[in-house]
Structures are given as structure tokens and as C-alpha cells.
Design a protein around this nucleic acid. Structure first.
Length: 680
DNA sequence: GTAGGGTTAG
């Protein structure tokens, strides 16, 4: 009689202690509780138990435990089962979800309404079309037919997975439609571009709330019809913060930042975190990375709480800028604020670390992610390839296969370019031939591009040319460019001329092609052809993209454009560049001027090369960072031969690791050599 | 219910 009351508080205390100490890793204690609970016939408070089981599940160490526990209960508990179904689907773990869901059904229980809603929403966001469809059938069998909330959930599910026909069917079958259902249908129609139908449904509605208006704004924005969207925004009688956010986003998506900002500033203190996120994302989409970071600082000074979404945009900005310090700061901020690192944020971190030159940190994040989607796998495969870790990229691909993730076109771009950067000929050939036969991914022009690059670099110029001639699509300038580059590396001038003519025809506006061609002629001392090239550029109004390099020092990104003297420290940098040059010459460096466009004398050429933007950025880095700290530079173009060999030497002479991200890949210079093994 | 985020060959 009194043995149970005595056992109960101690049991509850036990759970509370474990929960509060955050120590869920003691299996022994778990078993103890488990046994006691079974003996007691589960009389502990359900909410405490729910906390306990969900914490177990979230702790990652004993994820299998809650299922075991529930299966062993003498009497099935609908609340506990429902909770676990919700927790597992919330963490986007379909396998666990199915385990709990099937367990629930096997115990003759039914999911409750809120569980069903959540499942439908999760299926929608996971695009789990088939699961959603079969779930729909089950809901019908369980007799939830006339529940308006669930029908709206179904409607929303079909809308999100892109099945407009089913959405319409659910909608038509609804005995009555409230404003919520109508709104869901409007947004479904809008997503499929059926704007006329959406508009007429909107016009026919007797009751409209702010969501109805906002859905219409979004519909027009999604179609790029910003003027119609603005009209609705302007005459919306129930304008709320969402209306503002929607229209601002519409402008951002069209890169009309001025219009977006005008509204943004007009909002004053009515801005919420979504408004800020929209604007920050807008800056990032328009490649205004610095302004994105400024906006974030302002957001903080106005005490608006940043969210996971803010972090994703900021990380993307860092990735583009190559701002590792800033990226690391954001990562620390994410940890400090205990933001949930889901697949999207996780991928943003992986991408940031990859693009900022810290592949180790990228791998850490990657392996730390419990749920990975195709984007995460692709990011890390592409990343490894960019560093010249082709073998490792293949290893990751193999484990991706083991986890039954189906590779897509991007995966193969990463894999093939990785093989190309590492000179893995046979692996590259094998994956190229397998991608359609074994994996069902039809090679696109980008995959042919990778193969041309792979073959060309390895010196199989004829085979590369043959591939271009037989490929099922018209070769573009990238493909010809790869071959041309290969011709240059292998000093083949026979194929080059033929290729260049195609190139200029295909892409008469790309300044890079002219420069390349001109340099090729220059290296052969064919100065008349150089002149023709330059004249063509002037005639066609094509300009060489100026080389631009950036380096982050103390959280500020400094940009240097080749030959540009506008940086405030320019004079000092210049003096230092002279010093570097002297030291390099002392170590036997001979300037290689082949990449200089102009027909000018050698001394002048050397000066032009010395002012290549990456050299300025590296000099600036050497001057402004403590000894031993790695120097990380991001360049918009490909590094020239001279800079490449100079940087190798600088890394040795100044005892600094230098990491340069150029247009194609990473170069890790250390103690006189480069990670690309001069194969780039 | 409405708003915000990620990978792609030279």
C-alpha cells in the first residue's frame, strides 16, 4: 500500500534530476527508471514522462530508447505516442517517425488532430509526396473526413508539393470553406502561376482577412508582376507587417533595392525580424554583401532579435566575401544563442567554411549534422573538389550512396570537377559514363565541360576536342575555354587557333576571352594578332574584367583592384611591395610576364604584374596581421602564373601560410609549394 | 493562413 507512494516521488525526482543535470547519457539510470515505471504501471505524471522521453530522443545518444520504452509499457499511452511521433517528425527524421507512427497504429491508437497537422506540414516541407498521399488515405479511413482544419492541412500539403489537381480536389470536396481554406487555395493557385483563378477566387470571397490580401501580393510578386502587387499593397485596407514584408521581398527578388529600401525605411519601428531578414537576404541576392552585414548590425542596434534565417543570409555573405573571421564569429553566435542548426543553416555553415578556406571546419560541421540533405552532401563534395581533395570527394560520394541519398547533377559536377582538379583521370571517366547508366542523371553541358577540362589538363587534347564535337548540345564558351586553357598548359598552338575563333563568336562580350587570346598570341610573339584582338575589344566595347582581390583584417573586408591606388594605405603597401620584390629576386624569382596583355617593354610589365590585386592583398595581409597567422585572399579571376610562383616563394620567405581562393579553386601556399601541385 | 535561407563545369 505505502510502497507505491514512496516510490513515486523518488522516481519523479529521479527524472527531474536527470533532466535538470542535462545528463541523459547514463544507461544504467535509464534502465532503473524504466523498470520502476513498469512496476508502477506508469503512474508518474505524463508531462514529466513526455519531457523525459523527448529529451532522451533529442539527446541523440539514446534515440532508440523512447521507442523501446513505449513498446514495453503495459498499457499503451496515446499522449506519449503522439508526442514521440511529433518530436521525431519535427527533427525531420523520417525513419524514426515511421517507427513511432507505426507503433502508435499497432497499438490501435490514432494520431490526434495537432499531430496530423504537424505531420502534414512536415511532409509538405520535406516534399514527401508519397508518404503524404498514403497518409491522406489513412486519415480518411480513421474518420477525420469533415475536420476543416485537417482538410486545410491537406490542401496546403498538396499545394506545397506542387500537386495543384489534388489541392483543387480537396478544396472542391470541402462542405464549407472558411477564409483560411480560401487563402490556402489562393496561395496554391498563385504558386502555380494561375493568377487569374486566384484573383477571381479573391474577388468572390465574402470575407477577406489580411492574409487574403497578403496572399495576392505574394502571388503577383512570385510572377514578377510587381506593379500589380504594389497596387494591391496600396489599396489593402488591412495592411499589416506581413504586407510590407511581402512587397519588400517582391522588390528584392527583382533586385530593385531602391524601391525595397524606400519602403523598408518608411516602416520605421514597425519592422519585425522577418522584415530585416527580407532586406538582408535582398542585399545578399543583389551581391551587396557589405550592406547585408551593415543591416545586421543595425538590426541589433534596434534590438530586433536575429533568427536562424538571418544567420543563413549572413553566412552566405561571408562565403561570397571569403570573410572567415566574420563567419567564425557568426558560428560562435549561433552556438551562443543556441540556434537550431537544421539542414539549411548547416549547409550555409558548410558552404561558408568551404568558400572561406577552412575545409576542416566544413567537415566538422558536415559530420556533426544529424540530418543531411542533398545540398549538404553536394556542398562538401564540391568543397573537397575545390581544394584538390578528389579522392576524399569520392569517399564522401561513396558514403552518400551508402546512406541511399540519390545524387543529382550538382553532385556529379562536384565529383567530376574534383577529379579534374586532382588529375584523377580514370575515376572521372568512370563516373561520367556511370552517371546516366547507373544513377539516371543525364549529363548536362556542365558535365561535358568537366570532362573536357579533365581530358585537356591531362594532355588528351584530341580526345577532348572529339568529345566537344560529339556532345549532344552546342558547346558554349566555358567548354571551349577549358580546351583553350589546356592547349596553353600543354603548349599546343595547333588546336588553339581553331578554338579561339569559336570562342569569340560564341561569347563576343566576355572580356576574359579576348585577354586570353591576346596573351596566347603575345606568348608566341604574334604582336599583329595581339593588336587585332585589342582593336576588336575596343570596337565591340568589351572591357577586361579588372582583377579584384579581397582580404579580411579585423572583421573589415579590404578590396584591392589591380593597379588601383585608392586604398588609404596605398603608399605604404607600395613600399612594402618593393621590399617583397627585392626579397623574391634575391631568392631567384624570375617574373613571368606571359599574362600581360599589352605590347610593352619588360620593366613596365613587371610593374603591372606586381600590382596584380592578389599581390597587393597579400602584402596588405603581411603588413597587418600577426606573424604566423594564415593569410586568406579571395580573387575574382584566375591567378596568373607569375603570381602563383611568387606566392609560393612568399609563403616560404615570410613563413606564412597563404590561402587564395581564385575563380576556380583553392590554392594553399605553404613553405614554397602549393596544394594544387601546380596543376590548375 | 501571410514573410525570410542553401549546392552548379573554364
Amino acid at each position: 500500500m505505502h510502497s507505491i507512494p514512496r516510490a513515486l516521488p523518488s522516481l519523479a525526482d529521479h527524472i527531474t534530476i536527470i533532466l535538470s543535470s542535462n545528463n541523459l547519457f547514463r544507461l544504467k539510470q535509464l534502465h532503473q527508471i524504466h523498470t520502476q515505471l513498469l512496476i508502477n504501471g506508469c503512474v508518474t505524471s505524463t508531462s514529466l514522462l513526455t519531457d523525459f522521453l523527448t529529451s532522451c530522443y533529442r539527446s541523440q545518444k539514446h534515440q532508440q530508447y523512447p521507442l523501446l520504452f513505449l513498446q514495453n509499457l503495459p498499457k499503451p499511452d496515446p499522449f506519449l505516442w503522439n508526442s514521440m511521433v511529433r518530436v521525431s517528425i519535427e527533427s525531420e527524421n523520417l525513419q524514426d517517425f515511421l517507427g513511432f507512427y507505426n507503433g502508435l497504429r499497432e497499438n490501435n491508437l490514432v494520431p490526434n488532430k495537432s499531430t496530423i497537422s504537424l505531420i502534414l506540414r512536415s511532409f509538405a516541407s520535406l516534399c514527401a509526396t508519397h508518404l503524404g498521399e498514403s497518409f491522406h488515405c489513412q486519415i480518411l479511413k480513421m474518420g477525420f473526413v469533415s475536420e476543416m482544419v485537417l482538410q486545410t492541412g491537406l490542401l496546403d500539403f498538396y499545394a506545397k508539393v506542387g500537386d495543384l489537381a489534388s489541392a483543387k480536389m480537396v478544396f472542391d470536396e470541402m462542405p464549407e470553406r472558411d477564409v483560411v481554406a480560401n487563402n490556402a487555395m489562393i496561395s496554391a493557385l498563385g504558386k502555380h502561376g494561375c493568377i487569374e483563378e486566384a484573383q477571381s477566387l479573391f474577388d468572390s470571397m465574402l470575407e477577406r482577412n489580411s492574409c487574403s490580401w497578403n496572399s495576392m501580393i505574394t502571388c503577383y510578386c512570385k510572377l514578377g508582376r510587381i506593379d500589380s502587387a504594389r497596387q494591391i499593397f496600396d489599396c489593402n485596407p488591412v495592411r499589416d507587417v506581413v504586407s510590407w514584408n511581402a512587397i519588400i521581398d517582391g522588390y528584392c527578388k527583382l533586385e530593385q533595392l531602391m524601391n525595397a529600401e524606400e519602403l523598408f525605411f518608411r516602416m520605421g519601428s514597425a519592422k519585425n525580424s522577418v522584415t530585416w531578414n527580407t532586406m538582408i537576404a535582398g542585399y545578399v541576392q543583389s551581391k551587396e554583401f557589405g550592406r547585408a552585414i551593415c543591416a545586421f548590425q543595425q538590426m541589433q542596434s534596434e534590438s530586433v532579435k536575429p533568427t536562424e534565417v538571418t544567420m543563413v543570409s549572413l553566412l552566405s555573405a561571408c562565403a561570397h566575401l571569403g570573410a572567415l573571421d566574420m563567419g567564425e564569429w557568426i558560428h560562435a553566435y549561433i552556438r551562443r544563442k543556441k540556434f537550431r542548426v537544421d539542414v539549411v543553416l548547416g549547409n550555409a555553415l558548410i558552404d561558408m567554411y568551404c568558400k572561406c578556406g577552412s575545409i576542416e571546419a566544413a567537415l566538422d560541421v558536415f559530420y556533426g549534422l544529424r540530418v543531411k540533405n542533398i545540398f549538404c552532401w553536394n556542398s562538401i563534395i564540391v568543397g573537397l573538389g575545390m581544394y584538390g581533395y578528389g579522392k576524399e570527394a569520392i569517399d564522401v560520394f561513396i558514403s552518400m550512396e551508402k546512406e541511399s541519398i540519390k545524387p543529382d547533377g550538382v553532385t556529379f559536377v562536384g565529383l567530376l570537377s574534383g577529379c579534374s582538379h586532382s588529375g584523377l583521370m580514370s575515376a572521372g571517366r568512370r563516373y561520367f559514363s556511370q552517371m546516366s547508366s547507373l544513377y539516371g542523371v543525364v549529363p548536362g553541358i556542365e558535365h561535358y565541360g568537366c570532362m573536357v577540362d579533365l581530358l585537356g589538363r591531362a594532355g588528351f587534347l584530341e580526345e577532348a576536342l572529339e568529345l566537344i564535337k560529339t556532345m549532344p548540345m552546342k558547346p558554349n564558351s566555358v567548354v571551349w575555354g577549358s580546351l583553350l586553357r589546356a592547349c596553353q598548359v600543354h603548349k599546343d598552338t595547333k588546336v588553339s587557333e581553331q578554338v579561339t575563333r569559336y570562342l569569340l563568336e560564341l561569347d563576343p562580350c566576355d572580356g576574359g576571352n579576348y585577354v586570353f587570346l591576346s596573351n596566347l598570341y603575345a606568348s608566341l610573339n604574334r604582336w599583329d594578332d595581339v593588336k587585332i584582338c585589342r582593336r576588336l575589344m575596343i570596337e565591340r566595347g568589351v572591357r577586361k574584367t579588372p582583377g579584384c582581390s579581397s582580404i579580411e583584417v579585423d572583421n573589415i573586408v579590404h578590396e584591392f583592384v589591380a593597379g588601383d591606388a585608392s586604398h588609404p594605405d596605398f603608399t605604404q603597401i607600395n613600399v612594402f611591395l618593393d621590399e617583397i620584390e627585392k626579397k623574391l629576386k634575391g631568392h631567384g624569382h624570375k617574373p613571368d610576364t606571359a599574362s600581360v596583355l599589352h605590347d610593352i617593354d619588360d620593366e613596365e610589365k613587371e610593374i603591372i604584374i606586381r600590382y596584380h590585386s592578389e599581390r597587393i592583398a597579400v602584402a596588405f595581409g603581411l603588413m597587418n596581421t600577426p606573424p604566423g597567422k594564415a593569410i586568406r585572399v579571395v580573387k575574382n579571376l584566375r591567378t596568373c602564373n607569375d603570381c602563383h610562383s611568387a606566392l609560393k616563394l612568399i609563403s616560404k620567405v615570410f613563413k606564412r601560410e597563404i590561402i587564395v581562393r581564385d575563380r576556380n579553386r583553392f590554392h594553399q601556399f605553404s613553405n614554397g609549394s602549393c596544394s594544387c601541385k601546380d596543376y590548375w
